[in-house]
Write a protein that binds this DNA or RNA. Structure first.
Length: 581
RNA sequence: GGUCGCAUAGCUCAGCUGGAUAGAGCGCUGGCCUCCGAAGCCAGAGGUCCCAGGUUCGAAUCCUGGUGCGACCGCCA
């Protein structure tokens, strides 16, 4: 139930009526007509720009349209007043019963309140994390994982059919490096002295993998040439790393639907098939690239390569898909992977990348546009860096110094809920400060705590009500008489609740889950404000000893707030707290 | 040199795909607990929305050109 879209419908109907009675000409484009909450609450509950938008095409003065429209709107039972203001806005003030209806809907629909049909069941694929299977996930991956997962949940809530996907880069040279590193640990497990040279991964996390390999194959690979063990060790090692990564993701509450292996594209003709699709369109050719402008690499020399004509689709230069030695570039399997996504029938593709992959966006979009005949849009969300702090002091990460912070470190330190919420308090394209101490602070300054506390407060209130013998179950509150709710402070909270379905659509349309976090903060803020007013004005307290009907109505208001907080936290992947410890 | 992103209060940041007098938190100033809902509450001050043009009823928001900061820029993924 979305009160804003309902009122939008009311406005549209009123406009039709004005056309019917000849006030407005027929055939007007009303697409730009909006109904939204005004920035200044003094202007009312909702405002429409219809008169201003239609004035020019209708050949009428905004004021004239506004007045006629306002008269029509005032006739709606939910509208208390409709006033023309400013350059031609119509400010609507709603009858309290309209807000009561919203609360009843929230209690009736529960955590599904606010679900939208925006996505119309379109199939969207969200690819995120996709970290190389060469080690544990670090903080940067964590942000991408949280964002991608929240985006997937948001789009699901907004009516899309969402698939969450992880691309395993298990086909390139880096997994050979992994295999050699694991082999060294394997030799170590057999008591040999080993040295980790450049080009190997010295991390301790491979020690148990080396031991596990020993447990599995004994000394079969000791002293054998690389050609004998490289392939099996590589498979063993990537499996071990993916198990590690899945565990890391699980600790954060992230579950993928699909793990897609890059390796599965090799030797199966799938890369060739994808490139053939481009070749048929005349988008592949043999050629030599110009050196990059500005700073030419020292060892630059012109080489002929197989190039993808990505410039036809907005890229700056054409991109190589095959190296001069005849092997694929990393771009080739990526093309094949996205070709596969297109073939699987997705209507919309989203890739979540680190900001350092920004230079890769245009060619990927070009590839998807070419492969899908411009039918499937690809959006790439770039994640900015996470800056770590502890007690206000920057926390420098260094692999060598051993202060490399992993996803597991963060989750162990502050828990998955705090990790997720904090990571979603900033836009994906803005850098994020993460202070290990501040995020655990139990104070109003900490948004995580503030929102959790609001939910816990309502839970506590309901427990108290139940103890006092008041009906506090959802079933009881659902049918409650809400007519006692009329105070401005109470209606302010109801208004905020009414915005939830609208916010879901705005956040969904822009792929910005952080808006949910900010909304929840605002909603919590309204709830706390009402609670605090009860301090000075006992009449506003939720529980009124001598007024069970009024108490029940207020409990319904409180519970509706909690329901929305719970639904919103669900989108962020955060557990709503029932009590604060 | 090019591409992408960012630029809003002293600080950290929101800002509804173009709406009215630009918001929040922190910090600052001033009030508020012998008792009833203080892990606080209320009020106030604080702005060249980076600059210059443009689009229109209307721009922090869209376009163009600058400035500053960051990321990236041929066979590493």
């Amino acid at each position: 139930m979305n009160l804003f879209s309902e009122m939008h419908g009311t406005v549209a109907a009123a406009l039709d009526a004005l056309v019917a009675d000849g006030t407005l000409p027929a055939g007007l484009d009303t697409a730009a007509v909006t109904v939204e909450p005004p920035r200044d609450p003094a202007h009312g509950d909702m405002a429409t720009n219809a008169a201003m938008v239609l004035a020019k095409p209708a050949g009428l003065k905004p004021r004239a349209i506004a007045e006629a429209l306002a008269d029509r709107l005032a006739a709606d039972p939910r509208v208390a007043t409709a006033e023309v203001a400013g350059p031609g806005f119509i400010n609507l003030r709603l009858d309290p019963s309209a807000w009561h209806g919203v609360l009843a809907a929230a209690l009736g629909e529960g955590r599904d309140f606010g679900r939208s049909a925006l996505g119309q069941g379109l199939k969207v694929d969200v690819e995120y994390v996709s970290a190389n299977p060469t080690g544990p996930l670090h903080v940067g991956h964590t942000r991408g994982a949280v964002f991608g997962d929240a985006l997937a949940r948001l789009l699901d809530f907004a009516g899309y059919d969402v698939t969450r996907e992880y691309y395993i880069n298990d086909g390139g040279a880096q997994v050979d490096v992994l295999a050699r590193s694991v082999y060294l640990r394997y030799l170590e497990a057999h008591g040999q002295e080993v040295a980790f040279e450049d080009g190997t991964y010295p991390g301790d996390y491979l020690v148990p993998v080396g031991e596990a390999l020993k447990a599995e194959v004994g000394d079969a690979y000791v002293g054998r040439p690389e050609a004998e063990w490289l392939a099996p060790v590589r498979a063993f090692a990537t499996d071990a790393m993916m198990a590690l990564i899945r565990d890391d993701l699980k600790a954060l509450g992230v579950e993928m639907d699909v793990f897609f292996s890059e390796k599965s594209l090799y030797g199966t003709g799938r890369i060739e098939a994808a490139l053939d699709s481009l070749r048929e369109k005349g988008l592949l050719y043999e050629g030599v690239l110009e050196p990059p402008k500005g700073k030419t690499p020292e060892d630059w020399e012109p080489r002929e390569q197989t190039l993808f004509r990505s410039t036809d689709y907005g890229d700056d230069v054409d991109r190589p898909v095959m190296k001069s030695d005849g092997s694929w570039t990393y771009f080739a399997p990526d093309i094949a992977y996205h070709y596969d996504k297109v073939e699987r029938g997705f209507d919309w593709l989203i890739d979540v990348f680190g900001a350092d992959h920004g230079g890769y966006v245009k060619r990927m979009k070009a590839a998807v546009a070419a492969l899908s005949q411009d039918a499937v849009p690809l959006d790439v969300k770039l994640m900015q860096l996470v800056k770590l702090y502890k007690g206000g002091e920057p926390f420098k990460m260094s692999k060598r110094a051993g202060t490399f912070v992993t996803l597991r470190d963060v989750v162990d330190e502050v828990g998955p809920d705090v990790t997720r919420f904090v990571m979603l308090t900033r836009k994906n394209d803005a850098p994020l400060d993460f202070d290990f101490d501040k995020v655990l602070e139990q104070s109003k300054d900490n948004p995580v705590f503030y929102v959790q506390y609001a939910h816990a407060r309502v839970c506590s209130l309901l427990r108290k009500a139940e103890a006092a013998g008041l009906p506090a179950s959802d079933a009881a509150l659902r049918g409650a008489d809400l007519s006692a709710l009329g105070h401005e402070a109470e209606l302010a909270l109801a208004r905020k609740i009414a915005e939830w379905p609208r916010l879901v659509e705005i956040a969904g349309r822009s792929c910005e889950p952080h808006r949910v976090a900010f909304y929840l903060y605002d909603l919590a803020s309204e709830l706390h404000a009402l609670w605090n007013r009860g301090h000075d004005e006992p009449a506003l307290r939720f529980l009124q000893e001598d007024d069970p009907a009024g108490s029940t109505a207020r409990l319904a208001l409180a519970r509706a707030s909690a329901v929305v907080i719970s639904a919103g936290l669900g989108i962020l992947g955060v557990t709503p707290a029932e009590e604060m410890r």
